[in-house]
Design a protein around this nucleic acid. Sequence first.
RNA 1: GCGCCCGUAGCUCAACUGGAUAGAGCACCGGCCUUCUAAGCCGGAUGUUGCAGGUUCAAGUCCUGCCGGGCGCGCCA
Length: 584
Amino acid sequence: MNPFKDLKAVVVTALEDMARDGALPAGLDFERVGVDPPRDAAHGDVATNAAMVLAKPAAMKPRDLAEGLAARLREAAHVQVVEIAGPGFINLRLDPAYWQGCLAGILRAGTSYGRSDLGAGQPVNVEYVSANPTGPLTVAHARGAVVGDAVASVLAAVGYKVTREYYINDAGTQVDVLARSAYLRYREALGETIGEIPSGYYPGEYLKDVGAALAARDGDKWLVTEEEAWLPVVRRFAIDTLMTRVREDLAALGVRQDVFTSEASLVEAGGSDAVVRTLEARDLVYTGTLEPPKGKVLDDWEPRPQMLFRATRFGDDVDRPLRKSDGTWTYFTADMANHLDKYRRGGEVMIDVWGADHGGYVKRMKAAVEALTEGKGHLEVLICQMVKLLRDGEPVKMSKRAGTFVTLREVIDEVGKDVVRFIMLTRKNDAPLEFDLTKVMEQSRDNPVFYVQYAHARARSVLRLAATELPDLDQAPAALATVPLARLTDSTELGLIKHLSLWPRLLEGAAEAYEPHRVAFYLYDLAAAFHGLWTKGKDEARLRFLVADDAEVTAARLALVQGTALVIAAGLSIFGVEPVEEMR
RNA sequence: GCGCCCGUAGCUCAACUGGAUAGAGCACCGGCCUUCUAAGCCGGAUGUUGCAGGUUCAAGUCCUGCCGGGCGCGCCA
């Protein structure tokens, strides 16, 4: 059920008929032919650019081509008016019966309306969050979490087989710093005065819990041992504790990932070595010395020969180091192992959601995927820009260095997970986002979460009232598909159906572009259309949803209300947001 | 210095992968509640899409060069 796809088929069929009749050259590619809702409703219900994009390959004048196509489209079912406009657009207006039929189709499809098999079951791996387990999640992490989760849901809805993945960065020097920081808190928990946290350590208060928990478990046994004895134990303990907390935070946000891959175990299992061997076999590894970056002062720079990956062969700016001077692998090497692992587990298509501070890392990872998969794997990276947390328009003070930052958990506790999720999706991922804790709780049109929820609540409210007044009417979507929908004739009613008819097309577009925010804007527009119809019924009694002496029109309108509620709920469920039954 | 991202109405942002006269909200003005939620709706103004070129029937969208902002730039992750 996809009205605009059906309309495209109508146009393509007409073009094929023309080719068969000799009105068009044979073998034209209709790929670029668009059949879209026009920006301006005055242009009709649907517009196609077919005459313009085919004019050149067909060696015809756009106007002539348009005349021929328009003549055939006039014969198509439900086509009321066909006009040629501007440089060669063909505008179609469809009769009310077409749109009434669409509503019936939407209701028959029910909750599966909008879903499709576009992806044809192709596997896609979406990796997101992947935060270091060195502290609680923040609002910045939340954006990546929600965007990744929504991209995954959008792709799943259009038929891809999606794996949601988290890569745990539990190896390297940062987790050693974590361990030493936690050890300080452990000593503190056992009564020592540790004073100010030295620089280079994680100062966050949250590590007090970790230290105390370790003291409770192991007593004072690590106080007297050397670092090499306690470090692996404390590190493991701290990582496990913090990862548990990360998972709890994600659960509170409604994010549940399928696969958690540990960098440490990947390296331990020889993943990095395997990556280097693979690259060596393809002659993509050499020992060389990198130039210092120009225009940037590096006081401790000294030229050093190191093991390098020929990333420049795959479009990167410089070749990239694989091994640190202490002999261990770089983060990059381990992450290559991660991506090779994902690829082998069955994902030619991989999507990574990263923070803005990793933007400089995109080219090398794409280069690595191309090299490791011999061009068969494809990596797409979505960069999430900053989240500016505000309260009443004023920035909320945060400093990671001083350990004073607002955690995701605090924000969820304050405004609720649904608000966090929706707001995080009201911007393109690569645009900065303002998150005003005051504004998102406002009940006004300025707050999209409220506005969309209100529309759904109003729709449900009508259906509740109808259930008591018309107990014999079956409100199930499939049942409402059979009522006399021809009674829906007002332009506002038909306009609302047209909005609903866009949903499958919009969802596919959001999936192909990896842009879940489109769903948020769609829902906002749909809510506006519904609120408009609602109020029109207040002004003109004949347009009220429930008309006491006309059971038919009431049933038809309830079908429209049900369809609207259905689509809003479907959109919100893509976002992992619960549609509300009533506003409080 | 180099690379990536961004630049649209006074403010916050859209613009359906190149379509028609660039649209919403906020703010400002004026209307609409004995009736399904007025937490809403209707009407009113606002633009050299940072600048300059180029490609195209068609450019906010693609290409080149500038200007402005953000992020990043060997052995952190």
